[in-house]
Design a protein around this nucleic acid. Structure first.
Lengths: 215, 215, 215, 215
DNA sequence: CATGAATGAGTGTTCATTCAT
DNA sequence: AATGAATGAACACTCATTCAT
């Protein structure tokens, strides 16, 4: 490797690293204060630079949100695809998807919060159309998964599929608002307990059928 | 009744009515566009008046949000108190609380959306301390209800109470984001299905022992 | 005329008048400092209001330039059309056009300066395409007028028409840079002398033909 | 010649050459986009370097404009002085000055455009006082030349000298805005035709007395 | 009750300039 | 010589708010 080549790589890598740092900071601030309520100066303050300096790295505030969200979504969908490609049962697929979702929250918590809170607003702009597309794809995935589960006899047939879809979707993603990486419960712990609630409910198991209820 | 007196009454009543109208409009816009992203002018446009004219009715944009949220919370807590005062079993209380929550969503959808999306941000200001207090009260209520349920043998004991609390809280409130009063599913329908999911899960019941498996 | 109607007219008229006042101020500043070098605040200062207040009246700095230029061009072309419609000889038409041009300078001096100095720059934006169109129309008018003059034997045939066109165009418009309404020379005075120079040159008349040159 | 010495010479010469290159580029961009509307980055882009790198060669954006204009003016005045020093007739001097002006435009077109469009604005700063001085000197030169011409019977006496001065000055310099070196008309062609217009006008000569009018 | 014009602080963004490398 | 990251002041523009009418 020639010195020149190493230099070029070095600066390109350093640049990418700085971008990533700044994006992480921006994501944190957007998530905690809300995208609209966050000024570019607040982001810059959190990064220890001046407002205008951010524009050396990014074209606009919108561009930062764009990069934060699309990076997160790309990674999330890649993980989902791996699960879906395995051709498991509906139940196992559901477990896999939920587990991956919590892993996404673990790795991209601020991005998930932004996605959750701002995507309705952002999606009105041309640039963020992929948010709408992601939402559609998400819905299709869940509805067909739930349908498959009912067909396989794994899931109850007496529930409205649209409702169940929203129930799971919301519950999983909204958890990003309180989840703390490195906290008492790991992402996998939460996934496990959430799955238990989704699948079996919070009700104590009824006495076995051998002991019929005396009403 | 003297004309003067009638006028005064008429004016006072009309004034209150106008306030309510304007607040409803403001709540709608705040909910759909986000509080920070909503300008006073947008609210005024939606109400068919000019921006400055809102200040005849309200002291500030913040005052509008305040009145929207506190009205909603007051009514919600009154309903919760009625349920809690009945001294029912944990299971029945849970049903009652969830049902009342969906009734709140039905009656105050925009307020609930604002509460959901903006309260973290708003609660940093002195004026909105009651949001923090409401959150605390909410948490206490749920934790003691869940504990009671476990004691009564109604709820599973193997789940983290804090997690279950957040699970239910989030799932219920986030529904305000998609619920449409007068839509296909009524608030009570949704409450019923959500309760079914909370309590029994989405998994199909295993075959009962009366229908023995043919091995 | 009902009071209501008079009120409506009154406020509409007052509004239009205020706009015109502010536009005149803006034109003055744009003309004297250059459009790009003029900040919105400078315009506002000159108008005795704050920077932001201009946006109650105009959408943008560009919108002000637009209104200034299009108002001027509309009036100028209307005047030109009146001259052209009279069907005069080329010489008389030229006199009329030049006279109208100096009247335009008299009435819209700042607008003419802006047109002269900034139109190349502004015309790159979609909004100002009419500047290009006006330039084309202007060129066509002059070229056909000069051609007509040559045909009629009124103008010399040994000059490059494109050159003569630019010569006259530039000389007339650039005068806006130093012309002062109410100064020593009136717009009509200047028009008369400019016409003398265009037509007959600055050279002293040669001795009459009765005294043929002895070379 | 020691290597050290050759290096030093090479460096100094190369440095001067690079400056000249960069100044030519800057002049081009300033002329085509306007000084205020031109960012340092645009100049650097046109030169194929980064914005900050220009500051190795020049102290500031203003310094570039300064060097461009003063170089042009120095050369122009040197040429004018040569013409004036020849002690010719007013008519021949005028021809010489106009011809030199078009040669200046040919050699320094961008500088002339900048001078034409920006000098009023730049001349407000201390650094550019020489622009005002040049203007004064220019005016004196022309006024005395015109006066001489009238005295000599070469120029008409019925025209306002100030007006004629401005007429010629503007017409000559403004031509820099459309002149293209290497175009259809050379600088000398244009000078010749402009002189014809200045001196004799664009009007066809009246029929000579040998061809008497038939009344 | 509402309007219309204004305020003034603040927003996202630009840009001339600096400087360590 | 040139880069790349940063500065800091300024810019066009927005917006919650005020107030005379």
């Amino acid at each position: 490797m020639s010195p020149r080549r190493r230099d070029a790589e070095g600066t390109a890598a350093a640049r990418a690293e700085r971008r990533a740092e700044l994006l992480a900071t921006a994501a944190e601030v957007f998530a905690s204060q809300g995208y609209s309520a966050t000024t570019v100066r607040k982001v810059a303050d959190a990064a220890g630079i001046l407002g205008g300096s951010l524009y050396y790295h990014f074209d606009s505030k919108e561009a930062m949100a764009d990069e934060i969200l699309s990076t997160f979504l790309d990674e999330m969908w890649a993980a989902y695809e791996r699960v879906l490609a395995a051709g498991l049962s509906a139940r196992d697929t559901l477990e896999g998807i939920v587990a991956e979702s919590f892993r996404s929250i673990d790795r991209h918590r601020p991005a998930v919060v932004i996605y959750q809170n701002e995507s309705k607003h952002l999606a009105t702009s041309e640039r963020f159309q992929y948010l709408n597309e992601s939402r559609r794809r998400f819905q299709e995935m869940w509805l067909s998964l739930l349908e498959q589960g009912v067909r396989e006899g794994a899931f109850r047939a007496d529930l409205d599929p649209g409702l169940v879809y929203r129930f799971i979707r919301d519950t999983v993603w909204v958890a990003a608002n309180w989840y703390q990486p490195g906290g008492r419960l790991s992402a996998d712990d939460i996934a496990k307990q959430y799955l238990a609630m989704f699948l079996e409910g919070i009700q104590a198991s009824p006495p076995t059928s051998q002991e019929p209820r005396t009403s």
